[in-house]
Design a binder for these strands. Structure first.
Lengths: 247, 247
DNA sequence: CGTGTTATTGACCAACATCAAACTTAGTGG
DNA sequence: CCACTAAGTTTGATGTTGGTCAATAACACG
């Protein structure tokens, strides 16, 4: 069995996959043997651009990234946020042309994994192939939930929902334990994720503070009333299909 | 080689998969050997309900279905429309609990395929496994496009975009050849898909008619100006990841 | 024909957008 | 350590898209 550091790229990926599936020792060893090419990006850089035809997948090791599209009139829609351990362009294994970009929300380090290595591991280890497929299916489930939110929920609900989602996912990865976390996104980015204007996001956040649901001190968001926030956001973590609900 | 009728369930599935991938004769034979259990549903019936734990996948043979969620306050969000040949709950192979329902938009016939048979075919035929994975990835790409639309596009753009999408997918399947098709959805359903009210959908459809982009005669929608409609909807079929763009 | 569903219209309204300016905060360099 | 700067946040005033409600018209089907 290979020994790997707690916060190594391989360990990140294993930890992420173990939030959604069960791996045995051989699976973990196979992942630990995956060849990686590390790279850093600055805030606001693109890891991958719309239209690219990547030959590698990028495993997020440190920092946060988002998927986004830029539409005809220059408006941006963010379609998901990704945390360490995620492979946000896993779909590029089977969809050759990127239909969206991946942007760094913070300074970021990623590990690129050649497509051939990914294909090889899915061939040799069916459990891992299933885990990867499942991961992309969960991505899709999150898109559906966001779609429902943007389509049918109020601005207050959407924002509360997003905070609940991020907190739940961070907890599942063991990146936070108490219900407060470093906000990695600006209000403008929240707006682009939720189909709102940044002005309105600002006002709603103030409402949520006034209602005693959250507090914001500097860059840190603290959830004061988890149950209240869940209720305000109509949040139910089922769509994340986690192995254990961390709340 | 097995011979199968043009409009048999197996043929539908093969035709659908061939819009997004390449199959060889062995692949087609393997699909043609899949065990099926046919069933009919009436309009508005649920094929699968949110919370279900299906043990079969349902292959749509005839008619149209949608995925949808019902949110806290009883509002409905439709997340996709599905055409013959689609397996709209393919994700249930790896996500055991349905996080949304599947509803019949018209009278429908489906063919249920046991999960074991699906697992067996993915084990024995990697090409088909890849095709299935790719299909779910394209579903996800469509969710992303819809998310971008609902988040950032105007009502006019969203409606024009949806019409373009449906027409493109119907053409890809060879279900229509000219740019007019039987509208399988009510205006209320379009509204629930696009995050609008049915009143507003009605008004926008009238605008599109006034602008000479479409015509509606009874249940049939005819596209009068494909280029104009594409432009009005900011439509680019790339996100559908079709093998051949049928437009 | 009647009956239920769908489409259409009008009047009115609310949520959220836009614009523009001021204020904070966190870095940066002297 | 402090001024300077750029990014992000906050505020106010005003505008617009699209929602709601309610009534009527058009179909479709038995």
């Amino acid at each position: 069995m290979t020994t790997i550091a707690e916060d190594s790229p391989h360990a990140r990926l294993i930890r992420k996959l173990e939030t959604i599936t069960v791996l045995n020792r051989d699976d973990r060893d196979a992942i630990a043997a995956l060849p990686l090419r590390a790279k850093s990006f600055e805030e606001n850089q693109d890891l991958v651009r719309q239209g690219d035809r990547p030959s590698e997948c990028c495993l997020l090791v440190e920092g946060f990234v988002c998927r986004y599209k830029v539409l005809g009139e220059g408006q941006r829609q963010i379609m998901s946020f990704h945390l360490p351990g995620d492979i946000p362009d896993l779909q590029s294994l089977h969809l050759k042309v990127m239909d969206h970009g991946l942007g760094a929300l913070t300074p970021v380090t990623v590990a690129f994994i050649p497509h051939e290595a990914m294909e090889e591991i899915t061939r040799s280890r069916p459990t891992i192939a299933a885990a990867f497929w499942r991961d992309t299916l969960i991505d899709a489930a999150v898109f559906r939930e966001w779609l429902a939110g943007v389509g049918r929920r109020s601005a207050h609900q959407r924002i509360a929902h997003l905070i609940c989602e991020l907190c739940t996912r961070l907890k599942a990865l063991g990146l936070i334990d108490n219900p407060s976390f470093q906000l990695m996104v600006t209000q403008a980015e929240v707006a682009d994720a939720l189909g709102l204007s940044s002005v309105h996001v600002n006002r709603v956040l103030q409402d949520l503070r006034r209602d005693g649901l959250i507090a914001i001190q500097g860059r840190v968001l603290k959830i004061l009333d988890w149950e209240g926030l869940k209720e305000a956001g109509d949040f139910d973590s089922e769509y994340l299909h986690l192995r254990h609900d961390p709340s």
